[in-house]
Amino acid sequence: MLPAAARLTSSADFRKVTRTGRRAGRPRLVVHAVTEPRQAGSTAEPEADLSAARTTATPKVGFVVSKAVGNAVVRHRVARRLRHMVRERVGTLPPGSALVVRALPSAAVATSAELGQDFDAAIRRLRLVDDGDRNSGGSGGGV
């Protein structure tokens, strides 16, 4: 299970990450990410909660698995796989970052390895990790 300190739980935080964060789409999932703020003077009240979360050292991750993915059994299975996969990789993410991982319908039939490959490719595309930082991923090649 993902540690409590690494969970994104507030609906306002989910909204902020999905609306203002950068996005990388893959065949089975979409990753939205907000990293440390670069301009400190332009914060509004809705961002105050998320910026407080970003000051902690642990990156925060949330998951969205809609009914389009499948019935409740399938959605929970996909969410468990995503949580397990991200738990192994949360230490490689930049401190203070916030991510929302949104599963697409094709995630229902994907293996855990395929979900892991898509997540790794998405965070590389978002430049959250370097290609050399992931030595335990198993994605097998450079992009």
Rank of each mutant, 00 (worst) to 15 (best):
L82D: 05
R23S: 10
S106Y: 03
R89L: 14
L82S: 07
S66D: 04
A53H: 11
R83C: 03
G91M: 08
H84M: 00
V101N: 04
T56K: 12
R28F: 04
R38T: 11
T111F: 09
A113P: 10
R26D: 09
A24Y: 14
A57C: 05
E47P: 02
R38K: 06
V109M: 10
S106F: 01
V109Y: 00
F63W: 00
R81S: 12
E88P: 04
A40H: 09
Q39K: 09
D49I: 08
R23K: 12
V61S: 08
A98R: 13
G41M: 04
E47F: 08
A44Q: 04
A53G: 03
R54V: 07
G96Q: 12
A24G: 12
R80L: 05
E36R: 15
R26L: 08
S112C: 10
A33F: 14
V69D: 00
D49Q: 09
G62T: 03
E88M: 05
S51P: 02
R77G: 04
R102M: 04
T35E: 05
P95N: 08
T111K: 15
P46R: 05
E45V: 07
R81D: 06
T43P: 02
K60M: 03
A40N: 05
G41F: 00
A68H: 08
H76I: 07
V30E: 02
S112G: 14
T92P: 06
G62M: 02
G96L: 13
R77F: 00
G62R: 09
A33N: 09
D49G: 15
V30I: 15
V109L: 10
H84Q: 10
V30F: 01
A113E: 15
H84D: 08
L104G: 05
G91S: 14
P95R: 15
S106D: 08
R28I: 13
F63N: 01
T56P: 02
S112V: 09
L82K: 03
K67E: 01
M85G: 03
A53E: 15
T92M: 11
A98S: 15
A48P: 01
R80T: 00
G41P: 01
P94V: 10
S51E: 06
A40S: 09
P46H: 01
P59S: 10
P27Y: 14
P105R: 08
A53Q: 14
K60Q: 11
R77I: 06
V65L: 04
S112D: 12
M85C: 10
T56G: 15
S106T: 11
P37D: 07
P105G: 11
D49F: 09
A44M: 02
H32G: 13
T56M: 04
V61C: 08
V78D: 01
G70K: 04
A48L: 10
L50G: 10
R75A: 01
P95D: 06
L93Y: 12
G91V: 06
A68G: 07
S106V: 04
A103R: 07
G62K: 01
